[in-house]
Nucleic acid binder design. Structure first.
Lengths: 135, 135
DNA sequence: AGTATATTTGCAATGATGTTGCAAGTTTTA
DNA sequence: TAAAACTTGCAACATCATTGCAAATATACT
């Protein structure tokens, strides 16, 4: 599973990448850099985590998620993402109870009527509230 | 104008607050901390700018805007914001040409159909593209 | 208006977050 | 299995943001 993903993206298979990718797969929500550092303990250097995340984003394995508090979150991309070309036009949900951020892959961002002269190109939507697990 | 806003919000009238509030009123887009520091030159300490912005957010004079690159932007609230209770359910637009971020106060965030069990509370939408001035 | 009280500011120190260059270590290729 | 390519850790550095405290400024009171 983890190996497949790394190989499919032509990445060297290293302990760090395997471990971090596993974290994403075993988590149903999004992860912050700090979460990853906490989970991997003292195994990897901060820099390695940064670089691994950056590599994964570039390859289209994970994507950045916007947050209300301007922290950076990452989550696994669904299959239709390619290197350098993300298709994360789905809604993101932040639960105010469990504090998790979830990709709602099934829910696409709705169209919106902009004022004259405005040409939309990309749009993202962030919803906060209570998630399915907490209610 | 500037005085009215400060007084209405029970804030001491100081040079810093007047100057920074003027900046927002004279700008049609959103401002980053860095923009403000640049515009106010060497007049105020960085810390003062931070604290002023924080105060304004708390009072409901300005609100935070989500960005794609996870920087922090602020913009004037429309009149229906109160202290500790923002109503910025409008769409934000980032122009990829002039790089400005604009509040589209007239455009409200559309409803969206969430999966079962999800209870939405607040939603925000960020659209990027080309703005009315650039096209 | 002048003084007391409350608030705000600037400075210095500190912390959190993220980046870069380079040598040492690991993985891949053939 | 050795050479080439890539990845990692370390140290240094840059940026951004926060806090405590004393000095300065604004407001309230008589």
């Amino acid at each position: 599973m983890v190996l497949d993903i790394l190989k499919k993206n032509q990445l060297s298979v290293t302990e760090g990448r395997k471990k971090i990718l596993e974290l994403f797969i075993n988590s149903n929500g999004a992860l912050a850099h700090a979460d990853i550092e906490k989970s991997t303990g003292e195994i990897f250097d901060r820099v390695t985590v940064y670089r691994t995340l950056q590599t994964f984003v570039e390859k289209g394995i994970i994507h950045l998620i916007p947050t209300t508090d301007n922290s950076i979150l990452y989550a696994l991309c669904s299959d239709n993402c390619e290197a350098g070309h993300h298709h994360d036009n789905h809604v993101h949900f932040v639960c105010t109870v469990c504090n998790k951020t979830i990709c709602l892959d099934e829910v696409t961002v709705p169209q919106v009527q902009l004022p004259k002269g405005f040409k939309p190109n990309h749009m993202q939507m962030l919803v906060s509230g209570i998630c399915g697990d907490c209610k």
